[in-house]
């Protein structure tokens, strides 16, 4: 126990745009702590000289030619959006500064 506390979980939740409080926060913090506690077993394994694997396949240089392809229609794009003001998708106002 003690890998993560509720403060850390709150911070991470803010990064992930999730809202957590009260019992739900406590519970999820305890679960994450348990899981991360389990993950600690990796620390026993020496890996200093091991290269990380981010792709299992040894593929490189997969490229496409610079050829234009059809786009979706504006109508299709706007129809997907929960709120729109043609020709735009709308969101609650974005404030550029946080100060």
């Amino acid at each position: 126990m003690g890998v993560v506390n509720t403060e850390t979980v709150k911070h991470v939740a803010a990064l992930a745009r999730l809202h957590l409080e009260g019992q739900a926060l406590e519970q999820i913090a305890a679960q994450l702590d348990q899981i991360l506690g389990y993950v600690q077993l990796l620390q026993k394994l020496p890996t200093d000289n091991v290269a990380p694997t981010s792709h299992v396949l040894a593929l490189t240089n997969v490229l496409r030619e610079d050829t234009p392809a059809a786009s979706l229609s504006q109508d299709t794009v706007l129809t997907l959006a929960p709120e729109r003001h043609p020709p735009f998708v709308t969101v609650p106002k974005v404030i550029e500064t946080s100060s």
Partner: peptide, 30 residues
């Protein structure tokens, strides 16, 4: 879903990347 998003966000966040995500990629090699 929330649990996994939080866990994943945590292991990539500043200060934990090496200990978790990078470590995971190395053990993946093994």
């Amino acid at each position: 879903v929330k649990r996994r998003i939080l866990l994943g966000t945590y292991v990539l966040s500043q200060g934990y990347y090496e200990a978790y995500y990078l470590k995971g990629m190395k053990v993946r090699t093994l």
